[in-house]
């Protein structure tokens, strides 16, 4: 996602990531996911549940996982008034939102706003 950084900056987009990892694990992995994003640790799935994105699948978390469940991979674009403008839910964790898909969505939903 970090390859879209110039596109985020151009539009003044704030990027927030949510995962169930411990803060120190996220900090460790920060270089992989996004150097300038706000990276939230949602161990108790409070944020995930507020968005209704808890994975209800039976095998949602392997036994080694510290969290008891996981979010469904999802990307949301939010307008200045807090309205969801675009949503991409992955049916499978091996398919995440492709950067080109996210860019097209920003062009369609952010660039048409005044």
């Amino acid at each position: 996602m970090e390859e879209l950084r110039p596109e985020f900056d151009k539009r003044g987009v704030k990027v927030v990531t949510v995962s169930v990892d411990l803060p120190e694990v996220i900090a460790d992995r920060r270089h992989l996911h996004g150097l300038q994003a706000t990276m939230l640790s949602d161990q108790s799935l409070v944020v995930t549940d507020a968005f209704g994105l808890r994975n209800q699948g039976v095998h949602s978390a392997p036994p080694s996982e510290s969290a008891k469940a996981l979010p469904v991979p999802a990307t949301l674009l939010i307008g200045r008034d807090g309205t969801v403008l675009w949503r991409d839910l992955s049916e499978n964790y091996q398919r995440r939102s492709d950067p080109s898909v996210v860019l097209a969505a920003m062009e369609a939903h952010f660039d048409t706003l005044q």
């Binding site: 990027v15 927030v16 949510v18 995930t48 968005f51 979010p71 990307t75 949301l76 939010i78 920003m106």
Partner: peptide
């Protein structure tokens, strides 16, 4: 404008 990304 915000992008929120949930990931495993």
């Amino acid at each position: 404008l915000v992008l929120i990304k949930f990931f495993r």
